[in-house]
């Protein structure tokens, strides 16, 4: 390869390496600014990732949805969940579809598992929300976990996540435990 061609390729590589992260930022910023805002009631726990550091994993109350349509549903199946709010102002799933819904606000998500109780005639889907991770400064992740455990012992305590939803994609912006934001 001639020098010139290598420099052109190098320049393309540099642009590609800059473009991909920049695109990640752009996509998520547009969801945060244009997306519809929801509060998802949650229960966090605290693991860590070797490259990206400490985070808390969020378990959402709304991720379970009772269905009358008994399937077939299977793990990792791609589904669309339309969203609304309950009487307390927390997000809830209105319905789950196998194909993209026409209107309203929806989440593109996956089935975690499907539980069917033959005898009681009830069945529910557990959905795998993509926004179930909240990264924190390592010194604070432990404290956040403790705060959560204390909060979970107190039944009146409420933890929820602020989530913006746009065109099926969601970005989490903050987590609140009893009204206190984890990130200022």
């Amino acid at each position: 390869m001639s020098n010139k061609r290598i420099y052109v390729l190098l320049a393309l590589l540099v642009l590609l390496q800059l473009f991909v992260p920049a695109k990640m930022i752009y996509d998520h910023e547009s969801i945060l600014s244009k997306g519809e805002k929801f509060k998802f009631k949650t229960a966090p726990i605290d693991p860590s990732d070797p490259f990206r550091g400490k985070y808390i994993v969020l378990r959402f109350d709304a991720s379970r949805f009772y269905v009358t349509d008994k399937g077939p549903w299977y793990s990792n199946q791609e589904v669309y969940a339309t969203l609304g709010n309950d009487k307390d102002g927390f997000a809830k799933i209105n319905n789950v579809y196998r194909t993209k819904p026409e209107s309203s606000v929806y989440l593109k998500t996956k089935v975690d598992y499907f539980q069917n109780y033959e005898e009681s005639d009830s069945a529910y889907l557990n959905l795998d929300f993509s926004f179930n991770i909240f990264y924190m400064e390592e010194s604070k992740a432990g404290a956040a976990e403790t705060a959560y455990f204390e909060a979970s012992r107190d039944t009146n305590s409420v933890a929820y996540a602020n989530v913006s939803v746009l065109n099926g994609e969601a970005v989490i912006s903050n987590v609140y435990i009893d009204g206190v934001a984890l990130v200022k």
Binding site: P21, M24, I25, R52, N132, I133, F134, Y135, V171
Partner: peptide, 11 residues
């Protein structure tokens, strides 16, 4: 990309 994943909590 790790840092951007953190900033936007990309799971």
């Amino acid at each position: 990309i790790a840092m951007i994943s953190q900033i936007y909590h990309i799971s």
